[in-house]
Amino acid sequence: MSNRLAGCLLLLAISPAATAADYVAIPAGRFVSALAIDGSASRIAIKPFTMRAEPVTNAEYLTFVSKYPQWQRGRVSPLFAGPQYLAAWQGPLILGAAAQQQPVTNVSWFAARAFCANEHARLPSWYEWEYVSAADGTHRDARQDQARNQTLLSAILASNGERPGVIGQHHANFYGLRDLNQLLWEWTGDYAAMFPNADSRVAGGGALLALCGGSALAFEDKNQYALMMRVAALTALKPADDAPRVGFRCVRDLPGK
């Protein structure tokens, strides 16, 4: 079948409600990841996609769980979420002290994935997230700006594990995205596969054989301490885990790309 025909049909299939959130277009590009998980200085090709301008908020997540009771606190399968799931909320359908415009946190990877699927979207890959987070207000890649790097690191070190504040308090970056680097940490769809040999379930002599492509942790760009802390924190989580500062945003593929 032709991709163009398929793309047209796909557009027709998306309901108007699915476009309610603000997604911004991210152009294609190539960049060198700060991680050397695919070999030293590999140039990563990013296909164009669209991304939520801001992280998913408590208010948005409340709408989701109101519609899908199987994702409510107290009802969700223990396979998908732990006892701290949505812990900041007063009740399964009551935010209480949690602000509507705070990013939703204490959500598992499963829950984030289900939320995005519900709006015909998915979680970004690590490379997609890293690609857009490299920008500052005016440059696509500001990673060599030492003052910027220090600011991001200070923000992470100052966060101390408390819940993030409300979204949209910082300037949008080059792409029109907000709150990528300072407010919270975000799930990526492939986070668990960045270092799959770290999985205890493939420990022992079988570990090498269990991998078609092995990878070892190595940071190519030693200036990216803040990014390093994010990777370390994310890869320590299991997909049903959650944390007070880990939220998410969704992305969409562009039809036919």
């Binding site: 998980i37 695919d38 070999g39 590999s42 990563i44 396979l79 998908f80 990877w109 499963f110 994935r113 890959s125 492939d190 668990a192 596969a193 960045m194 799959p196 040999n197 999985d199 379930r201 493939v202 269990a210 991998l211 078609c212 492509g213 092995g214 990878s215 997909p239 049903a240």
Partner: peptide
């Protein structure tokens, strides 16, 4: 996710994954 399987496409083709 529920099986504890993770995978990621490799630049050189194929996937990095566990079994």
């Amino acid at each position: 996710g529920v099986l504890g399987i993770a995978y990621r496409p490799l630049l050189s083709g194929g996937f990095s994954h566990n079994v």
